[in-house]
């Protein structure tokens, strides 16, 4: 299976271990993984700030980069969602349509395409799972608390396969962490307060680790935790599934 890895720009620069874990995990699961180096960013930071018009050149670069692969896998629900949903603003050429259809968030890919049944990993800790809003309400990776509809998750069954991992229950299972792209600085006070509250929920319920599928949420949460000099650590789900050495 010819899989291209899309490593979001801030993950590339600040969290290479997440890219590495995703690369190794997919390779272990039998994919032929490559990283096309002309990739940069999906364009979301600009588009969500109202500058979709400026972002189009960046979006086109992404399409150009990934148009020849069967699958594009991205360890971020947010970036994958941007490509799938907001690339409707580009002219719908065959390439654009193909990339929009072939991009997958990592857990979604593991669950829906690879249909993974076993994960060789162990993580004997109490873990709080922070669902990113774009992963959950955008990509519909799991049922959200607002709807009166059957429960499902494309993520939790994967965590279930990890030996020793104890998932804690949060008071607010799918509250936003407050990162929100440029929101994190343009609405600094609300953003930080939301982050603190999110951290407090995990702390209250005994989390030793906060894990998630989107490094952007985790970067924000980690920033709050480190400022508080907390012992709680953050990890991307790719690192857990790949068998992180803790």
């Amino acid at each position: 299976m010819n899989v291209a890895l899309f490593v979001p720009c801030y993950v590339d620069q600040f969290y290479p271990q997440v890219g590495i874990a995703t690369f190794e995990l997919l390779t272990k699961l039998g994919c032929k993984v490559s990283f096309p180096e002309s990739q940069t960013c999906c364009g979301q930071p600009m588009a969500n700030s109202g500058c979709e018009a400026d972002a189009k050149v960046v979006m086109k670069n992404l399409v150009q980069t990934f148009k020849d692969y069967d699958y594009v896998v991205c360890p971020s629900g947010s970036c994958a969602l941007h490509v799938r949903e907001h690339y409707n603003k580009l002219e719908q050429t065959n390439d654009v349509i193909k990339v929009r259809n072939s991009i997958f968030e990592l857990c979604e890919f593991l669950s829906d395409v690879l249909k993974v049944k076993n994960i060789d990993a162990s993580f004997p800790f109490k873990v709080g799972f922070h669902q990113s809003c774009h992963g959950q309400r955008g990509m519909r990776l799991s049922q959200c608390s607002e709807l009166n509809a059957p429960q499902y998750s494309k993520v939790l069954p994967l965590l279930d396969m990890v030996k020793g991992l104890e998932l804690i229950t949060l008071d607010r299972i799918d509250e936003c962490c407050g990162f929100g792209g440029t929101f994190c600085v343009s609405e600094e006070a609300v953003s930080s307060k939301m982050g603190k509250d999110r951290v407090a929920d995990h702390k209250k319920n005994g989390a030793e680790y906060i894990i998630g599928g989107d490094m952007s949420c985790l970067m924000h949460i980690e920033g709050i935790l480190n400022r508080q000099k907390s012992n709680i650590k953050t990890l991307h789900i790719a690192e857990i599934l790949n068998g992180v050495k803790s």
């Binding site: 490593v7 290479p16 997440v18 690369f23 990283f35 930080s192 920033g223 400022r227």
Partner: peptide, 16 residues
């Protein structure tokens, strides 16, 4: 209200 992420020695693409 937040610490910056610690800059790693190399980016993913450098590692790759």
């Amino acid at each position: 209200n937040r610490e910056m992420p610690k800059p790693p020695k190399e980016s993913f693409r450098e590692w790759y």
